[in-house]
Design a protein around this nucleic acid. Structure first.
Ligand SMILES: [Mn+2]
Ligand SMILES: [Mn+2]
Ligand SMILES: [Zn+2]
Ligand SMILES: [Zn+2]
Lengths: 138, 138
DNA sequence: GCTTGACTTAGACAAGGTCCATTGTAGGAT
DNA sequence: ATCCTACAATGGACCTTGTCTAAGTCAAGC
């Protein structure tokens, strides 16, 4: 994701220390942090960054399509930098661990016309649930 | 759902005006109300019912397996009385309308071992998104 | 009709998230 | 290099959703 900053600059995004830090925190695979987790990690790198700025920056990254909002639990939204490859999620029902997954098949084709109620269906979001290796041995 | 009350009484549930009203509000097909929507409709039938009682009653109905919690958006949880037939949801991205749907196929089988990361996968939840007839003509 | 433990209530509290007036600054203009 | 200003950051008030508690109420069994 190191060209994320370049891409953003190219779109006229004003570069600030705060935005750089938020983008850094979101770098990586299988990253699904809550806003407050992002804030905590950002504070470690830039102590004076505010909660409002983290929320603002996350919202902008989502609008720009660089980060996805994910709601695997009913608590806080999670922010996912893996926006370029469509994927679904596998969640541990006990500890909340989240992995990106890529099922085979075309779930859109599995929704018959009679089950579409006249909707124009454009997308489907799947959340697999189970126990992670750690939690299932316990 | 008229035998819901009977079933609950059979399980030793003390019957009160408040619980009866909440159960009545939740009767029907494609019903997915938030707690505060349930409260508003309950107040119309029983003006003195409190918010806390609605939350308590919904929580009990969920524990008893008579109502499901659904999180199709990132806002409030929704309560779904269609707990006896497994199903998924189709949501209008614009107005939020929700329909129950029954896709064909077995999505669990579509998750290869290599995409399970050692998890014991037991369940999958699908949310289809699109535009309802009303919103797509606009 | 009593009694009593379960139920209900109002309101305080908490977490997640938004909004706003003020202050600060990135980056183009000179 | 300095100035300007539109855009960004800040802290704190505020909102929404949901939980908790102490005190009052009542369904249901005797
Ligand atoms: Mn992801
Ligand atoms: Mn449903
Ligand atoms: Zn786990
Ligand atoms: Zn609609």
């Amino acid at each position: 994701m190191s060209d994320l900053l370049g891409r953003l600059r190219g779109r006229g995004w004003r570069m600030t220390a705060q935005r750089r830090v938020v983008a850094e925190v979101l770098d990586g695979e299988h990253v699904h942090l809550t806003a407050d987790e992002v804030h905590a990690r950002a504070v470690a790198k830039l102590p004076e960054i505010s909660r409002a700025t983290v929320y603002n920056t996350l919202g902008e990254l989502v609008s720009l399509g660089e980060v996805l909002e994910v709601s695997t639990d009913k608590r806080a939204k999670r922010y996912d930098p893996n926006a370029h490859r469509p994927h679904h999620h596998l969640v541990c029902a006990q500890c909340g661990a989240i992995r990106d997954v890529h099922p085979t098949g075309n779930p859109l084709a599995d929704l018959p016309d009679s089950e579409r109620f006249g909707f124009t269906v454009s997308d489907v979001e799947m959340t697999y649930r189970g126990l992670c290796p750690n939690c299932s041995t316990a």
